[in-house]
């Protein structure tokens, strides 16, 4: 199983519950806004602690409330692409890209800076500051930063939602290539049906 996730979490009045087992290459979590899709991703990333449950990705247990396993985010070996990019504003593009690469152990890296730059076509951006990038450029850099950390799987939280139509198509093709060429398991969150139908190999619904 790529993703074997069973989590429960209470957030204020809302209760988030998900039971998902997927062997798809790109598993889409689909559901309306406010259903807790991002919270599920944060739980898989280790940024939000489930009240109870179990999270196993590609055979590695990241969280298990029964046995008390709860790996911190930095030991889960994931790549997280956020809706808003979240590039570090005080680092140039090159240093953003290399942030996770420097922290990864050499044997866990599977992509070099040159490879990432060629894969994403971001060579001309390397010396720029994040604030000077367009939405599409920033998202490419964010994807590159995630890949360079040598992740075992990717989490993507509405990575297209802040982009215009042309840029969406652009980034969508990048995601398809990650899915088909790099063969990384991807857990993908969206509320856009067309996006999900095109990209997903497995679809899981969250909320009503």
């Amino acid at each position: 199983m790529s993703f074997d996730i069973r989590v429960e979490r209470r957030l204020g009045e809302a209760r988030i519950a998900l039971d998902l087992a997927s062997d798809g290459r790109l598993t889409a979590l689909f559901g309306p806004s406010g259903a807790g899709k991002s919270s599920v991703l944060n739980m898989v990333a280790g940024l939000l602690r489930p009240d109870a449950g179990r999270i196993v990705v590609d055979g590695v247990t990241l969280f298990d409330s029964d046995t008390g396993i709860d790996l911190p985010p930095e030991r889960r070996r994931l790549g997280y692409v956020f809706q808003d990019g979240r590039l570090f504003p005080h680092k140039r593009v090159r240093d953003n890209l290399l942030y996770g690469w420097h922290l990864a152990r050499p044997e866990t890296r599977w992509m070099s800076l040159d490879e990432a730059v060629a894969f994403l076509g971001i060579g001309p951006l390397l010396d720029r500051w994040p604030r000077t990038l367009s939405g599409g450029e920033a998202q490419r850099v964010a994807i590159g930063r995630a890949l360079l950390a040598g992740p075992r799987f990717l989490l993507m939280d509405e990575p297209l939602s802040s982009l215009d139509a042309a840029r969406r198509e652009d980034i969508m093709q990048v995601i398809e290539r990650i899915r088909d060429e790099l063969r990384l398991p991807i857990l993908y969150v969206s509320h856009d049906r067309g996006e999900v139908e095109r990209l997903a190999t497995t679809i899981a619904r969250l909320g009503t």
């Binding site: 940024l47 985010p73 930095e74 997280y80 979240r86 570090f88 996770g100």
Partner: peptide, 8 residues
Amino acid sequence: GAARTLGA
């Protein structure tokens, strides 16, 4: 949080 997911 982003830094943590990148291994920091």
